[in-house]
Design a protein around this nucleic acid. Structure first.
Lengths: 223, 223
DNA sequence: TCAAGTATTTAGACTAGTCTAAACATTTCT
DNA sequence: AGAAATGTTTAGACTAGTCTAAATACTTGA
């Protein structure tokens, strides 16, 4: 059994792995967990002794299969609870994350599979991120940043790459939600802002930073 | 903000208060929390300093209004989650308690009120215990132990006074559930066992211990 | 290649919660 | 009332996790 702190570390390492393929750095973990590097070092030693990770002093850390399994399970729980909060309890995009941060650590053999069934085995969470199934498998969606579309392209919003309250609240405000249709009307090179039409209705100018953090695809993801 | 350990202590004190009206004893708290008396003493000092309880060395402890409020909130959360687990996820009577023990500590201003609404503002949990509303008010049901009925009495099962897995599993097995109709056919003085008919169908002999822990009433509780 | 700068680890201290063993109160029994 | 039994508290130690400050390793760049 792992403590919820251990789970948080494993999840953080898992999420950072794509950016640090040959070893996640201590400082990167410290930053996402909002803690100090020295605390991270302590925990890495512990997780290494327990066999969850491969840790070489000063060289960063990679997950062992068993550690990845734990991380994926936590992510599965997190995302299923997010679906529950959004669909059943009508929480908005920006509210669900921090509640799910707590719910993801609830321990029960059956609970999460029953919840999965109750929700109809959803494949994506409310932010468009894929939900691992019972066996830890999930579909990787081939998405692209809104920034990389060309004028005239039409796409569907399938995910966000940033989960801050401010960002998500802004998207809710302008009604730019999962599944929204986005047409690129114009792109302005000088500040990299993009003029789009949302769901064939409202036109709005999106900043460079915004466009970098919005994932879109030409195909609608299958539910 | 209170830690979940503090919440557990306040809840335990609250539940023990009826048995110890002028001061819950350290040893009683230690027993229900499955911990040592010395640990309890430490925590009582802390809760006392924080103003949640009234603690006099060697004299036991009573709740301050603010402590009672915290306890009732935790109980509200516990019981609402139990309703969710039983009604939405089809968990059985004996499984829901330990999952709810974890869920009761989830912190969110809105979560529990939304859950309450989603469940249709239930007044009783799956064990027949009343659920405090938003303001901490709840109906006290006037129940009586099955043991105290007379031959010929007919009653409805409205609650249980024991929450062990073994006890609850037994009741599930013999289909003696919340709302079951119970007719007292005979009482045997030598071992205080009772012969009953359940829902007008099966006849069964119930032991003294069982009858002590089953709460019944002549009126059906209003949902 | 070696000095300077940056990142990481170690050392030692702190908090929350727990425990055992010893000291101290309270209750009970004669 | 006083001794014995029981219950409670204190003292000191332990674990998990965190922190600051100092020491150490790695990286960069002249």
């Amino acid at each position: 059994m792992n403590s919820s702190t251990e789970e948080d570390y494993l999840k953080a390492i898992y999420k950072l792995t794509p950016q640090f393929p040959d070893g996640v750095l201590t400082s990167a973990i410290a930053e996402v967990l909002e803690t100090k590097a020295s605390s991270v070092t302590d925990m890495l030693k512990k997780l290494s002794e327990k066999g969850y990770i491969n840790y070489v002093k000063y060289q960063g850390v990679t997950l062992q299969p068993i550690g990845e399994e734990v991380a994926i399970k936590v992510i599965r729980k997190h995302r299923l609870w997010e679906v529950f909060l959004a669909e059943k309890l009508d929480f908005t995009w920006d509210e669900i994350h921090e509640i799910a941060e707590q719910l993801e650590h609830i321990v029960s053999v059956n609970l999460i599979d029953r919840l999965d069934k109750y929700l109809g085995f959803p494949k994506f969470d409310p932010h468009g991120d894929p939900i691992p199934d019972k066996n830890g498998k999930f579909q990787k969606i081939k998405d692209v940043a809104l920034r990389d579309l060309n004028v005239g392209d039409v796409a569907i919003l399938v995910g966000v790459r940033e989960h801050s309250k401010e960002f998500l609240q802004y998207l809710e405000n302008i009604k730019l939600l999962l599944g929204s249709k986005i047409e690129v009307l114009n792109k302005f090179a000088f500040d990299e802002s993009v003029l789009v039409k949302i769901n064939g209705k409202s036109e709005i100018m999106l900043s460079s930073l915004l466009c970098k953090n919005i994932s879109v695809t030409h195909e609608k993801p299958k539910k």
